[in-house]
Design a protein around this nucleic acid. Structure first.
Lengths: 145, 145
DNA sequence: AAAACATGTTAGCCAAAGCTAACATTCTAA
DNA sequence: TTAGAATGTTAGCTTTGGCTAACATGTTTT
């Protein structure tokens, strides 16, 4: 099966990905905020993601329908088991990309670049990058003991 | 200025990027096809990108309005100077990411991953990755002479 | 307990980039 | 040279994920 080109949107459709980039952003952030306090509310999420509250409400409803979070109007947002599992993977993925970029010596907008790239890599690439980063850190050590 | 989180869409808006990912895909492909033949038509582009012709027509109109291509109804598609410059950069970016992934030992969907990642990296990251790949290729050589 | 403020929701708009169905143009071959 | 095939365009629909304005609910303060 020859590999073919698609437009960016084409890959998304083709891959029938369960989670869109935005959904990932919200879940990752809910997970992050849940670690700091167990009262995560719409306003927290909105300001953490620099988004207006109605956007958050809309997305939370969707995440609730698909069983990533439990939520009732005016209440607080809790991840389900499923949501928590994904959240921790997303955070780990974030960490791997961030450390890779650090290791590359990227200086500008490193958080932004992390946020953008993390949605782009699949599992295989992610694990190769993780290995590579570990390897490079080893090199550093042997270069500057 | 502290770095902040945004959703994926947020970064796109924030960066007021001139070229969307899709626009990049089309320009890159037109450039690629132009190298093979100088008669690039809507149908060529549509099938190369696995997109229906009306999508191509729509995008070409937009690219023409923004001066990346010259096009008239039922005619063939030519890149402008501006379009050509960008096209060659996009192809180079593609090459850098592809070689990096090869070098990492990525086996599955390497073209697809290239296509997705190339839209995610900024210039700084791209050049660091390029350097790294050269470095890694050097390592290979010294490991397997 | 009522007024004022803060927080959350609803409704409805927008742009991007796909799609299909229907129509228009151009090319080819009888 | 004209009919039919191939190619291209238009119109209009869909989804995603933002946004604002207006309204609803909850919380706090007097």
């Amino acid at each position: 099966m020859k590999e073919e080109f698609y437009t960016s949107k084409g890959y998304k459709i083709k891959n029938e990905e369960v989670l869109s980039s935005s959904m990932e952003d919200y879940i990752e952030m809910i997970y992050r905020l849940s670690q700091e306090s167990d009262e995560v509310r719409v306003s927290d999420l909105s300001s953490a993601l620099n988004v207006q509250p109605p956007s958050t409400t809309k997305m939370i409803k969707r995440l609730a329908k698909e069983n990533y979070v439990i939520y009732e109007r005016y209440g607080c947002i809790k991840l389900t088991e499923k949501g928590r599992n994904i959240g921790s993977k997303l955070l780990e993925r974030h960490r791997i990309i961030f450390e890779f970029l650090e290791c590359l010596g990227v200086k500008e907008n490193i958080l932004e670049q992390t946020e953008i790239i993390e949605h782009a890599v699949n599992d295989e690439v992610l694990s190769k990058i993780d290995e590579l980063t570990k390897f490079l850190k080893g090199c550093d050590k042997s270069l500057s003991p």
